[in-house]
């Protein structure tokens, strides 16, 4: 049971950017929570989102799709998405899927905020 924590998406404002920190596991059962959190920010006119994945234990392709769509959505609104805090496992998934080449992936949250 230990690793099957539900998903929450705490957020934090930082200047013009909003940091989203998905916490727990993202899979097909709860991906709508992540999608909703992103949607809410984009609909509110937010153009820069930082996804700090440091508290993310697991992500399936359902979650990866939402990250990809979010980045694309922000880009089409003239904004951008930055990703940081990837665990070794998630970094490997980003590399295998080529996400590391098409998304802005930074090391720590400070690195991401510095790259805005």
């Amino acid at each position: 049971m230990a690793n099957h924590t539900p998903l929450s998406v705490p957020s934090e404002e930082h200047g013009n950017a909003v940091i989203l920190c998905p916490t727990g596991r993202v899979d097909g059962t709860n991906v709508a929570i992540l999608q909703g959190a992103v949607r809410e920010r984009i609909d509110a006119g937010q153009t820069t989102l930082v996804f700090d994945l440091v508290e993310l234990n697991y992500i399936s392709s359902a979650g990866l799709r939402v990250l990809l769509m979010s980045a694309r959505d922000l880009q089409s609104h003239g904004g951008k998405a930055l990703f940081c805090g990837l665990s070794e496992q998630i970094k490997q998934v980003f590399e295998i899927t080529g996400f590391d080449k098409i998304l802005a992936v930074l090391g720590t949250r400070d690195d991401a905020l510095g790259a805005i």
């Binding site: 392709s61 998934v93 080449k101 098409i102």
Partner: peptide, 23 residues
Amino acid sequence: PDTEQELDDRPIGGLGVFLVKQF
């Protein structure tokens, strides 16, 4: 999926089975 495609060109689906093959 073509993992070399740019952000705008990447199809949203098709990753699942690709991940199975890769891992």
